[in-house]
Amino acid sequence: MSHEMDWHAVWLQAPQLAKGLVFTLQIAFAGYAASLVLGLLVALLRMSPWWPLRSLAFAYTQFFRAISIYIYVIWIYFGLTMVTGLDLTPFAASVISIALLHSAYLSEVYRAAIQGVDKGQREAAGSLGLGRVSTFFEIVLPQAMLVAVPQLVSQFAMIVKDSAVVALIGASDLMAETIRAANLEHRTFEFYTTAALVYLALVIAVSRLGRLLERRLSRQAH
């Protein structure tokens, strides 16, 4: 039997889908911000002169990169609540899950970029009287961030895609609204196709903005 398309159903549910999209973006941005900060901290611990801190950071990256976002979301929202009694909202659980997973990846991006900065610049900064902290934040980190921009943008695109999993715990994101609308209207193909196109558009937009940012930073550097 052929399936007769009815895209009008998608239009009728557009306001709810738009609300889901806004919630998806809120989760993605919050999770990304947390990942950036936590990832930098882990990267610095990986480069610490003290081996216990290096070992701890290494274990962190290996552990959290080895587990699926699917497991994180379920475990944190349901398991952590049962063990600790914390009453996490779907939003909070989603952001924590994204931050744990993607900070482990971002820490390696940071570490590679920081180690790629010429050591001579650190020595030159020291000869000018700059301390280690000032040298890092004023000389090393800005150059490392410039190098890391493509990977940082790529990681945000991954976060946008991973955010679809949070529908599992009742978060009213784009995927959750898509599932609800598809079941309500009995138009699975139309709604899931629409969701796929929205996610595709988001990833393309992020990639293009990343390239524009990279070119702009490169011009400023020169």
Rank of each mutant, 00 (worst) to 15 (best):
A30N: 11
Y32E: 10
Y32I: 07
A33V: 13
S35I: 01
L36Q: 09
L36G: 08
V37S: 14
V37N: 11
L38F: 10
L38M: 11
G39K: 00
G39Y: 00
G39F: 01
L40M: 14
L41Y: 09
V42K: 02
V42H: 08
L45Q: 02
R46E: 02
R46N: 04
W50C: 14
W51N: 10
W51V: 13
P52H: 07
P52M: 05
L53I: 01
L53T: 03
R54I: 00
S55G: 14
L56A: 14
L56E: 00
A57S: 07
A57Q: 01
A57W: 00
A57P: 02
F58D: 12
F58M: 11
A59V: 01
Y60G: 02
T61Q: 10
T61H: 06
Q62V: 11
F63V: 15
F63G: 08
R65C: 06
R65A: 10
A66D: 09
I67R: 05
S68Y: 04
S68G: 10
I69D: 01
Y70G: 03
I71P: 02
I71L: 15
I71Q: 05
Y72I: 06
V73G: 11
V73A: 15
I74C: 13
W75E: 01
I76G: 12
Y77K: 00
Y77F: 14
F78G: 10
F78M: 06
G79S: 06
G79W: 04
T81E: 08
M82G: 14
T84P: 07
G85P: 04
G85S: 09
L88W: 06
L88F: 12
L88K: 04
T89H: 07
T89I: 08
P90S: 10
P90Y: 07
P90V: 05
F91C: 02
F91Q: 03
A92F: 12
A93G: 15
